[in-house]
Design a protein around this nucleic acid. Structure first.
Lengths: 247, 247
DNA sequence: CGCAATCTTGAACACCCTCAAGCATGGTGG
DNA sequence: CCACCATGCTTGAGGGTGTTCAAGATTGCG
């Protein structure tokens, strides 16, 4: 209900050059001189509280979004009516690249906690990309890696056991926290068990069971959404399939 | 062994304007006037026989490929060493968009039958895309839909039963044959059961069993790689989950 | 013709799901 | 402030779908 776009604050011009995430979000994409032209286009300052909708599937797609703070999940509703979580997006990451084709958003996006984003209007970005070769290149790169990670995810779902999937997710989150200079071994999960289960193609109960199993094996320390990775090496082993060694 | 690029024929300049697939491959992307500039860049005429490698994972990525004839499978080798089929590509489709980021090919590509492709050098395409807005736009669209289809595939793998997965694949192939004005109900599978199983995250035996089950239910008629879809409507029902109705 | 690869079929087992119930957590209102 | 309820998380038991292992049938190709 209501335009998800028209929220609290007026649309501030972005301040990419002083954003702490600029190195993650648009690394090297734009030279010092051109960054102003980028800032003219990007709208900053949208903020969403937990559970709020950022955009909804099949609504007209106008923008991609860069996550500034918080966390986002994207979901698809398939024809048989059930929801599939297709991704989690953390600060510095760009979301909505799947929606450039076809005019309407290919997925819905929800804030998992208090979240702020920068809005990248697609048509303006395309125009600018033509003028700034490095920006165009960067966009191609971003989209290409989005394809890759989506394929990796498909692979995870098709070949791996519950333990492998969960270990992989924990490690992925870990390295994404590390990129932001946060602790790679101690963090809060931004999403519910339910979302994890859905994203990994498992039942909630299975996620729960595996988490406690990991805990009993001394791999992690988890209480609710707080997680501490105790043995990253072993977790990596688990993620790489030969989890045959049951202690 | 040897450069997969350096094959039989010398590199002919492409003749997109008289290619029967141009409407699928680069629809509306380029105006009449500009198509020459595209033809200057695209190299045509590479041909591969069954089983040959078009490119290999982690080899330096130079080009995307448009399939002219035949069929291609792409695979990823993951860290634990086993192979995952990530996609099948038929004439009119473009392959290798996942390899634009990171310099090296993200997957390997193999000809499933006698196959010919047009080569799209990535760097040249980027330059041209800057000059031709519609081409840039088209590339963004292509990559975006690649993300989408890859997500759809992940969804298929995470939520659906063996029957649903196989029905989906058959229907996907069917509609892709139809686009090319071939029979949507009667065609040859370009890939082995093994590839299907791998692509769908199943065991070969399961694929076999489901195919014969479909046959017994009068949904299809299959003998080896020859397939005839007898009841497309029902197949669609099966693909959409409520396959509870066992006759 | 014969071998190799591919495909099919069968039986037993494993993994994960479903169903069901109990347990924590947190926000709300009395 | 605490009781209360809703929501989310955990734990247990049983059953189903697909895998694995094994063997046989079919196809294709030298």
């Amino acid at each position: 209900m209501g335009h998800p776009i028209a929220t609290t604050r007026p649309q501030l011009k972005a301040l990419c050059h002083q954003c702490s995430l600029s190195k993650l979000c648009l690394p090297l994409a734009v030279g010092e001189d051109d960054i102003e032209r980028l800032e003219d286009i990007i709208k900053q300052g949208r903020s969403f509280s937990r559970g709020e909708t950022i955009f909804e599937q099949s609504e007209k797609a106008t923008s991609c979004f860069a996550v500034r703070g918080g966390a986002i999940k994207t979901t698809i509703i398939n024809k048989s009516g059930d929801e599939q979580v297709t991704g989690f997006y953390l600060p510095g990451e760009i979301m909505g690249l799947d929606s450039i084709s076809g005019n309407s958003y290919a997925c819905s996006a929800y804030a998992l906690e208090r979240t702020s984003v920068c809005e990248l209007p697609i048509d303006h970005m395309e125009v600018l990309a033509r003028k700034l070769p490095t920006l165009q290149h960067h966009f191609f790169q971003l989209m290409s890696s989005e394809i890759q990670s989506s394929q990796q995810h498909a692979m995870l779902l098709s070949k791996n056991t519950a333990e492998e999937r969960i270990a992989s997710l924990l490690l992925s989150l870990s390295s994404r926290f590390e990129r932001r200079r946060l602790s790679p071994t101690r963090f809060n999960l931004p999403m519910a068990r339910n979302d994890i289960a859905n994203y990994l193609g498992l039942a909630v109960e299975t996620v729960s069971r595996v988490m406690t199993r990991f805990q009993n094996q001394g791999l992690i320390n988890a209480k609710g959404r707080e997680v501490e990775l105790l043995d990253v090496e072993l977790l990596q082993e688990v993620a790489l399939t030969f989890a045959r060694c049951k202690s």
